[in-house]
Design a protein around this nucleic acid. Structure first.
Length: 360
DNA sequence: TAGTCGTGGAA
DNA sequence: TTTCCAAGACT
């Protein structure tokens, strides 16, 4: 009984100490309201989508570009999907961009352009899952919500020396996080925990000496912070190979490209003609030139190859290049695109790497 | 529920 | 160089 009361007090101390730390170390971020300033739900939503599995430093320039191009959610909804994908190019996880666009249109058509505040409504929106719904609820509207991302999971696992390995243990850690929720300053608390996780309670070399809750942290007491959270060993990703063909038009230097299927990986983004992916190294495509735009051309193999690592496989790309007078572009999906227009088109990093070699 | 979805920074 | 993994969602 006495111990339970003690635990309860420690949980209050935890939130207070984290919030005090936040007040002293508060970062200025483009989407973050200043103290005593009201946050912009559009900015909070947009940033939360961009920040999914993506670092703050990577997101900032994209966020600034998006809010300059589309200052309100109505303007974002009015844009074309291709313009959204073009602006998103390089950020990865392109279904986020397509869902972002769909979500903006739903908010305009079903919610009169006003982002809903309840978790129940938020979670129905495209691209908004459990985490993001709670994050918007807390950060944009200062409502109580259990906002648990990878940072919070790590902080909580260390606080309680949580032994169940992730990802199986993630459900239990969310219940733990709920125990620590304060009764006020919901927006600040959510952001303070994530900042603490990304700045102090880091995955490697955690700065326990600088941590405001080091005396409450069980992992720190054992000097074992870095060993939490425990994780199941990861599976290795396979290596695949691909051959890509960079065909240049002599008259203006335009390159033959086409849009990938919207439901495929890199959906809606541009690529050059290529052999299929997912072909294991032990079983290469027998006749790569069957996939060339014109296998009668003089294809020159580039010395450099491209290696690109996706989430669940790696790709080694052999590149051939050729020039022509103006071959017919085949089906309507194909397009000749001039290099000076590359930054106006949705070109993912893989394609950019291939073009950089193929246009040498 | 486990696999599918990018990319780049850090150690 | 390799490995990890980040303010996850969707199926």
């Amino acid at each position: 009984m006495k111990k339970k009361v003690e635990n309860s007090k420690n949980k209050e101390r935890f939130a207070n100490k984290v919030l005090e730390w936040y007040d002293r170390n508060r970062r200025v971020l483009p989407w973050r309201a200043l103290p005593h300033e009201k946050s912009n739900p559009y900015h909070v939503w947009l940033s939360e989508i961009m920040l999914q599995q993506t670092g703050v430093g990577t997101v900032i320039p994209y966020f600034l570009d998006f809010t300059q191009k589309w200052p309100t959610i109505r303007e974002l909804a009015a844009a074309s999907e291709q313009d959204i994908l073009t602006a998103w190019a390089g950020l990865g996880y392109y279904s986020r961009a397509r869902n972002l666009h769909r979500c903006a249109r739903v908010v305009v058509s079903d919610y009169n352009g006003v982002i809903p505040c309840s978790v129940d409504e938020l979670i129905k929106l495209p691209g908004v899952g459990d985490y993001t719904a709670n994050a918007i609820h807390a950060i944009a509207f200062d409502e109580p919500s259990n906002v648990v991302d990878g940072n919070v999971e790590r902080v909580m696992a260390r606080m309680t020396a949580y032994e169940t390995p992730f990802p199986a243990g993630k459900k239990g850690i969310k219940a733990t996080a709920k125990e620590f929720l304060p009764s006020s300053r919901h927006a600040d608390y959510a952001q303070s925990l994530m900042d603490l996780g990304s700045m102090v309670c880091t995955p490697k070399n955690p700065k326990c000496d600088a941590c405001p809750v080091q005396l409450l942290c069980m992992a720190n007491q054992m000097e074992m912070a870095e060993t939490y959270p425990k994780r199941e060993p990861k599976k290795k990703i396979p290596n695949h190979t691909m051959t890509a063909f960079v065909l240049t038009r002599l008259s203006d230097g335009a390159v033959l490209m086409h849009y990938r299927d919207k439901n495929a990986m890199l959906g809606g983004m541009l690529e050059v003609p290529s052999t299929p992916w997912g072909v294991k190294q032990s079983c290469p495509v027998e006749q790569p030139f069957d996939y060339a735009p014109d296998n009668a051309l003089q294809w020159l193999r580039c010395d450099d190859t491209v290696r690109h690592v996706f989430s669940h496989f790696a790709l080694s790309v052999t590149i051939y290049k050729a020039s022509c007078d103006g071959i017919n572009a085949g089906d309507a999906k194909h397009e000749w695109i001039k290099p000076e227009n590359f930054d106006r088109k949705p070109i993912p990093t893989l394609t950019k790497k291939i073009l950089a070699i193929g246009l040498l």
